[in-house]
Amino acid sequence: MDANFKKQLEQIACKVRIGIIESVHAAKAGHPGGSLSIAEILTYLYFKEMNVDPENPKDPKRDRFVLSKGHAAPALYATLAERGYFSPDELLTLRQIGSRLQGHPDMKNIPGVDMSTGSLGQGISTAVGMALSSKHFGDNYNVYTILGDGEIEEGQVWEAAMFASNKKLSNLTAFIDLNNLQIDGTIDEVNSAKPVDKKFEAFGWHVITIDGHDYDAIESALAEAKTVDKPVAIIAETVKGKGVSYMENAVNWHGAAPNDELFEVAMTELNAALAAFN
């Protein structure tokens, strides 16, 4: 990857993280940990990979994205705002009465949101439906989704995985955000779905494991995905809370907003990271 372009992506991801923290802080609620872990994946998808146009968000031929782990809505909203679907100022209305930015993504009202999600396990099935529609009607767009590693404890995920491989939905790519934490504790403590790679392989998917914060790895995985005649699972090993020191690998930041003091700490860290690019 071109070094300058990578630097641009890194700056964008940093702004996405700032958007996550600012919006969750303003809302006094939300899910920062699992939002911060997917900032690089979302940035790459919306700024490099996907054929989308903020000026024409309903283009029937566009690539689709489904945030199956819908509680990471702050990350999706911040990415869409950076991409130009709406003003970043609107991020501060997250979860407020009258705001378009619902606690979980709402496709009816938010430009750029392709599917309403939030109830775990359903998003991947809807992505499968989109990929099937693309193939069936010859529209030839690609479909991307991100699932949580806790989310894949839902049985519906595996119903969807079975169907997608049986129908050879090679236009479907699912990222699994393997950050090792869910609300009640670590994945291993709660009800681990590991080995995640072996499970998806057994369900007939092509599996690639990467560092989910490494743009070169994301790029090469998505390039590899286009060469196989199967749905592709990209197991993205990530750090929950990535970019905010006290949130990293800390289960208590799954679904809690920082108070004013901790907000300042987070913003100081993220602004310093952003300034380092200049």
Binding site: M107, Q122, G129, L132
Partner: peptide, 22 residues
């Protein structure tokens, strides 16, 4: 398309198809 014995998946797949305007 036969989804097999997986009604929950079938309904959400249908939602995805409908979300593409079909």
């Amino acid at each position: 398309y036969d989804c097999g014995i997986a009604e929950q998946n079938m309904v959400s797949i249908a939602a995805g198809i409908a979300a593409t305007g079909k």
